Every structure is written in structure tokens, then in C-alpha cells.
Computed example of a mutant assay.
Amino acid sequence: MTAPLRILFMGTPDFACPSLQALLHGPDTVIAAICQPDRRKGRGRKLAPPPVKAQALEAGLTVLQPESVRTPEFLAQVRELAPDLIVVVAYGKILPKALLEAAPLGAINVHGSLLPRYRGAAPIQWAVLNGDRETGVTIMQLDEGMDTGDILRTATLAISPEDTAGSIFTRLAELGGPTLVETIQELKAGRITPQPQDHSQASMAPMLTKEQGHIDWSRPAEEVHATIRGLDPWPSAYGFLGGKRFRFFSPQLVAKPAAEPPGTVARADGQGLLIATGTDYLQLAEIQPEGKKRMSVQACLCGTPIQAGDLFS
């Protein structure tokens, strides 16, 4: 019987938590967790631990939070832990060669796309923004590049017209855990042949900005539909009416050529807002008026007058 591996886990946000949980319940031993330092959040700007830290401490793991992973002191700490394998899931920084080579089996990563498509910080959002019908997770061997290492295993996931970046985020995170554990067992058994990526097919998924959420209603309905879903929950898609910002959620395509100028409200009632685009209409079930919480359009209309003929910029 193969001895359990000593695994050093590196991850920071919610996306990494299901993978850590799967490892904790798997046949190998997680010896410590490394995550980004606590950051100030919210209106009170209080220090808050990253999700992986909270999960690791609850499991009784040692947690390290270096400001830099490139110092000799940190590398010495890792070598002292003597890991057989380093597992990285959304840690947040590119790792130096010395760290990647600090474990005999190297370092492997759980990435939220089907590589080489969508390398970078926001692969899940860009898959939805671009109207893809499928995405997945890739388990890869880490190298010094950004998501350029050899592929060990992939698992696919369908994207429905109702999916948002948030819903795909959750489903991919859950898919990553068992896929990671299966990959490690195959590695231990010597049954995986790493496959180099076809770099000619690579595409990038850069970090999103708030400005990307400003809707251009003259675009085709399918593109606006994908924008609203791909930016939900952050930074969210928005438009302006009467000088106030409104954020939009839960869109549905209405296949009927728009008769009004793009951005015009064709109907506002309990069913939602029907808004003209450059081609057809979108019906929006949820909205967030400036300074208020996200709510149903029906609830919004009780206190915010939006009516047919209004034009969102």
C-alpha cells in the first residue's frame, strides 16, 4: 500500500476551500496551509482572515501567511515542513522556481477553466462573458509561467443560460475537490502522463474592473445577457436613470425585435423590466437601485418609479 503523501496546501479565497476539504478527507496528510495575509474589509476596515485560514485553523492545521513567498526565510520554512507535494488553489501569486521545486513531486494547481483557454485571474467570469456553453477545472503541474504548466486532468461542466459567474464559481469549486484527489491518487500510482498545453490555443482572462459593468444597450441582446450574468455578483452590470445608478441581475432573453431605442424600458411591472437592446429585448427580474440592496423588480417599483419610455444610459 502506498504511504500517504505529505501535502502542503496553498490557497486563499472561497474557491480553494472545497479542495482543502477534499484533501482533509482524503487518504493523504495535509501538513500545513499557506494563504495570503489578513486584509482589511468592509466599511469598518477591520482585519479579516481569508476563508482558507479560517477553514485550516478549524481543522487544526498550522497556517503560514507570508507577505512574500520569495524570501529565503519562507523557503526555509517550507523545506522544514518537508512536503512531498505542494497543492495550489487560487493562492493569488505566481510562485518562484525554488518553491515549486521544494517538494519531490513538485506543485500542482486547480484552475477554473479548460486550459489553455482562460489563463489568468478571472477565468470563470470570462467564460460566462463570452457566452461559452462549457467550462471546467484543469489540474496542472505548475511552472514559472501564468497557468502554462502541463495538464494532468480536466473535468468539464456545462454552462446554462441561467448560470452566473457566481453560480459557476460555486460549482467549479465543488468539482475541483474530488478531481484534485483523484489526480493525486493517479500521480501516486504512476498512471498519469502530463500533457503539454497547446500555447497557440491560449487565451487570457484578465482581472475585471468596475467600469466593465457599464452596459452598452446598443449591443445584441445575447451579449448584454452574457455581460449581466458574467459580472454577477461582482462587479455587476449597471446603467443610469435620472442620474442614479441601477445594477441589473437575472436577465432573460425575449426573442422579439426591439421597436424602441436601445436602453428604453418597454414595460415595467411585476414580471420585471423589459428593456430594448440593439437587437431584441431583455427581461430583468432583479435590480439594485443606488444606495439600496438587491431586490426583485416588483419590490423596487413599490418605491422607485420606473416606467415604460424611461431610457437607461
Rank of each mutant, 00 (worst) to 15 (best):
Q21Y: 00
F74L: 08
I31E: 13
L20I: 03
P261W: 00
L61D: 15
T227V: 12
P50N: 11
P27M: 01
K293L: 11
V52M: 14
H111R: 04
T138R: 08
K41R: 05
K244W: 03
L23S: 15
A266C: 07
P206S: 03
C35D: 06
F240P: 00
T279I: 13
P66T: 08
G11T: 05
R70T: 15
G177V: 02
K41C: 14
D84P: 02
R171P: 03
L273W: 04
K244H: 15
P206A: 06
T164M: 02
P116M: 04
F240M: 11
A308D: 03
M207Q: 12
A255M: 09
P305I: 15
T156Y: 07
F74N: 06
Q65H: 01
E286R: 14
L274K: 06
G177H: 00
T193I: 07
L142Y: 07
A268W: 15
G131F: 15
D310T: 09
A54N: 11
G92R: 07
S236C: 10
I184R: 06
V181S: 12
V254P: 00
P289L: 06
E101Y: 00
G60D: 13
F248Y: 02
T164F: 04
A107W: 03
T264L: 12
S200L: 08
E260W: 08
Q298Y: 09
L175G: 15
T193A: 10
L114I: 05
G120Q: 15
Q21K: 06
P261Y: 02
P27A: 12
L301C: 13
V181N: 04
T164D: 00
I228H: 05
